[in-house]
Simulated assay, not measured.
Amino acid sequence: MDAIYRHQRHIYDASRKFYLLGRDRLIDELAPPERGSVLEIGCGTGRNLIRIAQAYPGRACFGLDVSSAMLETARRSVARAGLTDRIGLAQADATDFDPLALFGRAGFDRIVISYALSMIPPWQGVVEEALRRLAPGGELHIVDFGDQHALPGAFRTLLNRWLALFHVTPRRDLAAVLAGCATRAGATLQARSLHRGYAALAVLRRAG
């Protein structure tokens, strides 16, 4: 991942804002409880975490990423935003991490995964790990590329060829896999398709 992002990280936010649709909608609907906690898995440059911390004062925010290069950029961005005391960052594998060792807490009220599942080959394991790390009554919010069911064929072909250049693979079975993960974890699932299937937005809620 460092090899992929070593140079991309410098233009990542400026370029991705045009096609990573639904990220701000996810943040608007996150609604973490007062004095609650938020973890972003695959936090990248810290863009989402900064917006979450600004939108929800009083919540403790954390981010993990496997890429040390991305985390270096995230730390600088967090510092520029004056949020070093609000946002904790750590390097870890999203399929197997210890939140107590990394952040000093066993679980989180909200966990966010934004356009990371389409870049992680063992992505189902990431979802399962995130569900395990939710506090009772917590929610896992996911936004990523969708099944593209209503996109024009030519556009869909060009989109997928372009995404492949960045090692991105839309998970067209995302909704079905999330439903299975929710059932096994005793969670509920709400999933929506955005922009004719271009993106998908999902919320998995753990029982309180």
Rank of each mutant, 00 (worst) to 15 (best):
R206C: 02
A53W: 14
L189C: 07
G146T: 10
P57V: 07
G63V: 02
D109L: 02
A179S: 13
M119L: 15
G63P: 04
L178D: 05
D2C: 01
E128R: 14
A202W: 14
V127D: 05
G153I: 00
F155W: 07
R172H: 08
N48V: 15
M119E: 12
Q190S: 13
E40C: 12
V78A: 07
E128N: 08
P32L: 04
L39R: 02
P121G: 00
S118A: 15
Q91A: 15
L64Q: 02
R105W: 03
Q148Y: 15
L64K: 03
G44Q: 01
R76V: 01
H10N: 11
P170H: 12
T73L: 12
S68P: 00
R132L: 06
Q148P: 00
D93P: 02
D96I: 02
I120P: 08
L174K: 08
Y56I: 13
D98K: 01
G125V: 01
F97T: 01
T157L: 01
L163S: 04
A74M: 09
V168P: 00
I120L: 04
L100W: 08
T73K: 15
G36K: 06
A135G: 00
C43K: 14
A175V: 11
P33F: 03
P32C: 04
T157K: 11
Q148I: 00
L26K: 13
L30R: 11
P122C: 00
A175L: 05
A79T: 12
L178W: 13
Q8S: 13
A90M: 02
A130M: 04
L100C: 10
R80V: 06
S114D: 02
Y115V: 06
L83P: 06
L189V: 05
I111S: 06
G44M: 02
T95D: 02
L151Q: 01
A81I: 09
I11R: 14
A14L: 15
L26I: 10
I120D: 06
G137K: 03
G82D: 07
G82T: 05
V66L: 15
D109E: 11
R196Q: 09
T95P: 07
Q148R: 10
L194T: 05
L140D: 07
G63Q: 02
G36R: 04
A55H: 15
R133Q: 12
G137C: 02
G186M: 09
F103Y: 03
E139L: 04
I41E: 07
V177M: 05
C181W: 12
C61M: 06
L49C: 11
L194Y: 13
A79V: 06
D96G: 10
G197E: 03
L174D: 03
A81F: 11
L39H: 03
I87A: 07
T169L: 10
V38I: 12
H141Q: 10
V143Y: 13
I11W: 08
N160K: 11
I111G: 09
G197Q: 05
V203S: 05
G22K: 12
P121Q: 03
E139K: 14
G44H: 04
R47G: 00
V127G: 05
R80N: 13
I113L: 14
A53R: 12
V78E: 03
V78T: 04
S114P: 08
R76S: 10
L158C: 03
